[in-house]
Design a binder for these strands. Sequence first.
DNA 1: ATGCCGGGTCCTACCCGA
Length: 256
Amino acid sequence: MKLATWNVNSIRQRAEQVARWVKRAAPDILLLQELKCEAAAFPETLFAELGYRAEIVGQKAYNGVAVLSRLPFETRARALPGLPPHDTQARYVEIEAAGVVVGGIYAPNGNSGGDDGFAYKLAWLDALAVHAAHLLAADTPLILAGDFNICPTDADLAPGALAPEDALVRPESRAGFRRLLWLGLTDALRALHPTERLFTFWDYQASAFDADRGLRIDHVLLSPTLAERLVAASVERAERAAPHPSDHAPVVVTLD
DNA sequence: ATGCCGGGTCCTACCCGA
């Protein structure tokens, strides 16, 4: 199984690039984040023509996640279980394909909205950990992948790229990420590239990409039996170098 | 340390991203 995740920063702006990449890379499953549109505006037929069925959790202007799969799948959830019902932010979609539960993640950034905004980020991560714990307790083969908006360690950002009080590196955010690892999930990129300088996001400003001043905030987490099958994990930097790119590059994982 | 970039929308000044 080849699985990829990509924060596209507007699927309407990125449709042609994503379709070209899908054609070339041929992932079995592609998780998308920051669609920035409602489901009706998602370019569904473009991907149907390439053999992919979509599950779209859209939202006007902000957020928005989707799964594209060329494997048959069933949808299990269109919101993160455990969040209050009045929370309508489109940040989670969960499917089951080939016996594997796949959760597509767009975790809150946590820098806007002051204390409430950061508290929302932590509450969201807490709900994610509780949900993951339930699935893992039942030995469910599980992949949680997407934009977690967390640099797990100081090795996961260019020196000085963020202030110490930034929500992406705050100790509470990093503890939220470690909690997922303590549940038994494996960070696929770091498992195969323990010391490499690896980023998945580069700011549009100040030539951040050319200077390789990036962040590693997009992650693929694998449950134990799937981690045993991990054979490759990479960042598709060429997509960040393309004309009019997203500020994120795809992360791709291959399981035997 | 930042909103210089780039997306969105109440169409245009402002919000949000990381």
